[in-house]
Design a protein around this nucleic acid. Structure first.
Lengths: 346, 346
DNA sequence: CTGAAAGCGCTTACAG
DNA sequence: CTGAAAGCGCTTACAG
């Protein structure tokens, strides 16, 4: 499993040059060095130049711990999530990192290893112990908003349906997105739309299911019984097999793209042609959706915009030194029509 | 795009109780409180209890900045990557977060917004300015290892082919994995194996291409000219169309799964049946690979094991207070045979 | 097992 | 525009 090769000389880690070292070399006070490194404008140009030269020569960079201790700010925001490796979380995290970096902030990941109540409390406890100035919560799958016991003064922004109404929030307009999908299928001529829902304890899943049902009912249709998956492609495949076996099924709205992938395979195996026999729409807009067979029609979320808004919301609060009022920013979804949708067989 | 609703009273953020407050309440010295919070065993049980009670009552948690400043350790490791939202990076990051948390470490993300030389230098500069005790570098796509100017005393572990030989490294055994894939196709009876390579400036891509070519040559075959993609499914689709148009092509080894997805679609559109007419193997083992049509045979990487090994390597160095010798841990890949491979048409 | 003192490396008032 | 002093909240020697 491994092989060792030549080595670097082991040595104790030494701490870098201090502000005093720079001050001495530049012939100024530590005070002035500090002003230069924080970007204050109250320094004479030639003094500044001398200091910057000394910094370069010594390879100085300010000790973040000392700076944080004194100034009371870490220039770091935390991301709290249940997992970081799924589509939504990963894309949002990437966007948060970029947006935060653009404003000079670092990002620390705060994971929750299991979704039980206890671990959320410990995550919250860890949080106050954390070196962050603010917090972004993304799809955290908590049991109850109250269990997220965050210090009342910590700036926070969430993208988690459960937390809407409790904290400043940024959410995709899932209901509108669902309506778009269902109405599109209806307009294509389908007599009813079946549904693969997400897990029952997921609030976004509930939202999408409710919107699907309501849209059908408002058109005077009775919603057929929904199948339920767990977001995974396997689960979409499993419940998809029942759907594929039912000749009355001509259109299915899936609560996410991965389950749609599973359904696509189930339909394929059952010899049902997509979109000739059955139309399928997913939700999320994952990159690979363009390369399913056929390419997946989907309701795409704009995770990039969500990350940006989240960072703006948190950094705004940090700068203003106040927790923002509870609010809700809605980010529009977009129906991307590709190859899995067509009129029903005549 | 948004709507505001009722508000929480805006208030200034206040700093929590200090160690002195706890000491006073518990009737001990700050010293003793410190011993309790750092888990020292030199405290009498009843004293400890009293202190813990006081901590709970006050909601005390130690100020990380002060602790870091005094002790010289942040209990944080940084992850340096070009992006965090692709399969490999996201899965490795998740694994690093879990493993780090298990040892009481937080994880800070250090992104590199563009892959040019300059930004790597600035990322490295930012790094010394960063509050981390050690660094994990994952698939960073740097131009040259030398451009990653890390303080020589910062503990580091990398999972980046370019960095092997420069830093302690953890890598999938890509060459062995490629050999497995190519030999499997050969054993199935294919007369030659075509190849969709990754981008030319990617070292992992070069490794996989070289291993593919060498394996063919060692069997006495001349390797056909490789097509080149950029890791994306679209690129796999584009070069895949040429492959699909060539009747001599019966087997293709793709440098990653996403390009394989693109190829699958190109073959499908060209009316070439998989695996009857053409066999396809990918690399990575993404979750959706099980749900392509047909399910994708692939060389899976164990990103979880990679993350674990990375964390062990870094934290080991932090604890030992030395930069580890340059080493290389190889993590085996695994050929997962699914539905895209079969003997060639007779 | 417990405590009084010093100091980690900065930035924040306060002078000049 | 620049500097001398104080102190952020802890932990690290050093005593006892």
């Amino acid at each position: 499993m491994n092989c060792m090769s030549a080595s670097t000389a082991p040595r104790r880690r030494k701490t870098g040059p201090s502000i005093e070292d720079v001050a001495r070399l530049a012939g100024v006070s530590a005070q002035t060095v500090s002003r230069v490194s924080t970007g204050s404008d109250k320094v004479r140009p030639d003094t500044r130049t001398r200091v910057i030269e000394a910094m370069g020569q010594l390879g100085y960079s300010p000790n973040r711990a000392a700076r944080a201790l004194r100034s009371g700010t870490f220039r770091t925001i935390g991301i709290l999530a249940y997992r970081f490796d799924r589509t939504g979380e990963a894309l949002t995290t990437q966007s948060v990192v970029e947006a935060a970096a653009a404003q000079g902030y670092s990002v620390t990941l705060v994971g929750v290893t299991n979704p039980g109540r206890e671990s959320w409390e410990s995550a919250a406890a860890t949080l106050s112990d954390q070196a962050v100035d603010g917090l972004v919560v993304i799809r955290a799958e908590i049991a109850a908003p109250e269990s997220l016991a965050i210090t009342p003064y910590l700036p926070i922004a969430a993208s988690d349906s459960r937390l809407v109404g409790y904290y400043p929030s940024v959410m995709s307009e899932q209901t509108a997105g669902t309506v778009d999908a269902v109405e599109y299928l209806l307009k294509l001529g389908h007599r009813t739309i079946h549904h693969i829902a997400g897990p029952g304890d997921s609030y976004p899943a509930q939202l999408r299911s409710a919107a699907w049902q309501r849209t059908l009912e408002e058109t005077g249709l009775r919603a057929p019984e929904a199948k339920r998956g767990d977001w995974s492609a396997v689960s979409g495949y499993q419940v998809g097999r029942e759907l594929a076996a039912d000749p009355n099924v001509t259109a299915v709205y899936c609560a996410n793209d991965e389950m749609a992938f599973g359904l696509l395979r189930a339909l394929h195996e059952a010899g049902r042609s997509v979109p000739r026999d059955v139309s399928v729409i997913g939700f999320d807009g994952i990159a690979l959706g363009e390369f399913s067979t056929p390419p997946l029609t989907t309701v795409a979320q704009d995770f990039h915009a969500i990350g940006l808004a989240l960072v703006d919301l948190v950094i705004g609060q940090i700068k203003a030194q106040i927790r923002a009022p509870v609010s809700r920013v809605g980010v529009p979804t977009k129906l991307i029509v590709r190859g899995t949708t067509a009129p029903p067989p005549s």
